[in-house]
């Protein structure tokens, strides 16, 4: 009995709870979130399977991983005398899978040792899972269509099965209205500027500005055509519009921010090698990947949607670590 009283006083959105996730996990609120999360995962699989996507087992380690992650450090370890990485995203392997199956997805566990300031955003985890989707011969509008369909399906399913739980969580969730609004990066910057918020056509939208933008919308929306420079080497540059990438983000409304990142993929070795230099690395580091591109893979498009952020949005949670049973946040030592 004392424990229940104690539990009810707990603020699950406080970072102080992180080192005591063994207490947080027994909170009635957390139990509801975890059940909803299970429904989210099930619904996502249902939706993707219905479209003919095949679920593949995700890679966990490899000689290289995605370097295009904002300032986050990779986990490097010794693999029988050679350096190996824990996946920061499975993007390179999604492209590899395109040589076999046309439509695939992973439930991909990723580790990103995020910079310490990410602990304050309430939306960054060091360990998380993303549903990582890829389709051969698709373009980025096809990928946006799938992302939109997926989110809508999942929300409907949760509303149907967890009406009471959502009420208990104090969440008023609506089915998003389709089609989602699509802004080019340039249009998004213009909107921000018209509200007196600093943003540049040439650069990514800063976290804070993105959050502000997200507050301006009632439904999820897309930003597409990001400028070349700040994204991974695998986001394809538009051949007719140099400097513009055929990629997109989907943002949740109400200040929840980034939901999805996706793009058409670059699949030609010479373009990839040029783009890889943005990180300053030697392309030789990505040996197998370059060899694979030279061997040939089909063009594709896809995206990743973080399960914890999706749960956070659906449940209306203050911090993303409320959407994971044993959350790890930058710089905080926790179980």
């Amino acid at each position: 009995m004392t424990e229940t009283v104690h539990l009810k006083k707990l603020d699950l959105s406080s970072p102080n709870i992180l080192p005591k996730s063994y207490i947080a996990i027994r909170h009635p609120r957390m139990k509801k979130v975890l059940k909803i999360q299970a429904t989210i995962c099930m619904a996502a699989r249902e939706y993707l399977n219905s479209l003919g996507f095949i679920e593949l087992l995700p890679p966990i380690i490899g000689p290289v991983t995605d370097p295009g992650i904002r300032g986050a450090k990779q986990v490097t370890f010794d693999f029988y005398g050679r350096e190996y990485k824990v996946m920061s995203s499975a993007i390179l392997y999604k492209q590899m899978a395109m040589a076999s199956l046309d439509k695939i997805y992973f439930f991909s566990p990723n580790i990103r040792l995020e910079p310490l300031d990410s602990a304050k955003t309430g939306r960054h985890l060091v360990e998380f899972v993303q549903i990582d989707i890829e389709q051969a011969y698709a373009n980025y509008f096809d990928a946006m269509e799938i992302a939109e369909g997926l989110l809508t399906y999942v929300v409907k399913k949760v509303l149907k099965e967890h009406e009471e739980d959502l009420k208990d969580l104090g969440r008023e969730l609506k089915v998003p209205r389709r089609p989602f609004k699509k802004l080019t990066h340039r249009e998004a910057v213009d909107i921000l500027r018209s509200h007196g918020i600093k943003a540049s056509y040439e650069h990514e939208i800063p976290w804070e500005a993105e959050k502000e933008l997200s507050f301006m919308f009632e439904d999820p929306f897309f930003i597409y055509d990001y400028p070349r420079g700040a994204r991974g080497f695998y986001d394809r540059e538009d051949p007719k519009r140099p400097g513009i990438l055929r990629d997109f983000d989907m943002l949740y409304p109400e200040g929840y921010g980034e939901a999805v990142s996706g793009a058409e993929r670059e699949y030609r070795a010479e373009k990839v090698i040029e783009r890889m230099r943005a990180t300053g690395e030697n392309p030789a580091k990505y040996g197998w990947y370059i060899e694979m591109l030279k061997y040939g893979i089909p063009p594709s498009a896809g995206f990743g949607i973080g399960v914890e952020r999706l749960t956070r949005y659906i449940c209306g949670l203050k911090a993303v670590w409320e959407a994971r049973p044993y959350p790890k946040v930058a710089g905080i030592y926790s179980p």
């Binding site: 300032g71 800063p206 400028p227 420079g229 700040a230 230099r277 943005a278 990180t279 300053g280």
Partner: peptide
């Protein structure tokens, strides 16, 4: 060490990526 390959585009990408990744 290797000198590294640069073009106008590569240098631009490199600066933009670093500004984005390490804003502080």
């Amino acid at each position: 060490s290797v000198p590294g390959t640069f073009t106008k585009e590569i240098l631009k990408d490199m600066i933009k990526l670093a500004k984005n990744n390490y804003p502080r």
